[in-house]
Design a protein around this nucleic acid. Sequence first.
RNA 1: CGGGGCAUAGCGCAGUCUGGUAGCGCACCUGCUUUGGGAGCAGGGGGUCGCAAGUUCGAAUCUUGCUGCCCCGACCA
Length: 449
Amino acid sequence: MRLSRFFLPMLRDDPKEAEIVSHRLMLRAGMIRQSSAGIYSWLPLGYRVLSKIEQIVREEQDRAGALELLMPTIQSADLWRESGRYDDYGKEMLRIQDRHERDLLFGPTNEELITAIFRDGVKSYKDLPRILYHIQWKFRDEIRPRFGVMRGREFLMKDSYSFDLTQEEARRSYNRMFVSYLRTFARMGLKSIPMAAETGPIGGDLSHEFIVLAETGESEVYCHSDYLAMQSPGEDLDYDSDLAPLVKTWTSQYAATAEMHDAARFESEVAEAERVTARGIEVGHIFFFGTKYSEAMGAKVQGPDGGLTPVEMGSYGIGVSRLVGAIIEASHDEAGIIWPQSVAPFDVGLINLKAGDAETDEACEGFYTQLQNAGFDVLYDDREDRAGAKFAAMDLIGLPWQLIVGPKSLKAGEVELKERATGARHSLTFESALNMLTNAGVGEVGVGA
RNA sequence: CGGGGCAUAGCGCAGUCUGGUAGCGCACCUGCUUUGGGAGCAGGGGGUCGCAAGUUCGAAUCUUGCUGCCCCGACCA
């Protein structure tokens, strides 16, 4: 993509409404624009990142055996009356009417709809277990939206729903999602820590929030330092194996958000040197809720004995749009965003330091073509602007690599390759730069730790 | 919903107290000079001052009502 033909409205000054760093940087880098409180348009640069995150989430769900579908944003109120939540949900739910004055709502979540779909399609225990998911826009009329996309009213969420015959089997579905979440966040360059959350009506230990550590995170979290060193499960993970030991490893040490924190327990269970107190962002939440909806809505299957049993269900959410903000919170510096390779809007930024100069232009055009042929997604800054302005813009939007091309280095037969995260610069031939990028795995589909 | 604040050009702001033909910086357009970390000079375009009513010869400025947005708290991916 040529920057001269791209749509990238960058701002030099911070918009005054943006308090936290991710919000400021997303506005300045031309990723989003606010439409109204808590509702945003995603501009091309931001949409690229959102799509990449969405794709990683999708791949890891598929890998875990979940099946993608797509449910509508608008739902009928009747369904919610079946579960009893139409009256319970409160003002957070946006209620609307169609031209026939039928009650509709903009879905804040999809338990009712998915339960109805499942109920109508599955009658036998032989069709269990199943995990269904979709990635769809939700609307929750938050009392006070804030922090840009971190707490919007409209947000993109991945929500999965599991259906099992027994609680024991439901736990296996839960474990699948648990493990897949570790992989999902790791692939985005995030260190996520599962923390015990408020348990549902069934009780037990089947609810976890996945917290990403970030200095600017919204809530305070307490955990054992072991979590910081734990490696997320790799690509060789077999989802059909017994995942319980792995889940146990990730839940055996103390980890709690401020709401669940028990200072006395923390101090007795964790040695002082191993206590970590940090700030974090909730990017995922999984929980088991048993037969709450299947009972109320009659989602039953026939067991081997011929009897009807309400299915055991769980739901599993990832805040896809929130993750964009969370990644920035976890990865930025004074100059701007530092994208992990896996979610970067482009792989490489090609900077023409002297656009308009015949030789430099010609060299850049050649490099641009060769980079693309090598499979890299390139943003080519071909604008006639000063070097400083281009460096600042490229640092702001945070592409992981910058290929800097100017008359001086060209004269020496070289280009300069800069790594955004470290600031390290290498003067080398274009061919060597190409090799370096290839060796760094740029442009490959990241498969995580 | 309770408390606080803001609304003037794409972004950041001054002007409002004390009414008198709307300004600055950045960004944008043109030209010249410049060109390896947000250039300089000159010229230029862009705003019914959030909306509505009122007071007044005259309202960005005073009065009243409304709307939108932000921040602090309880809620949440």
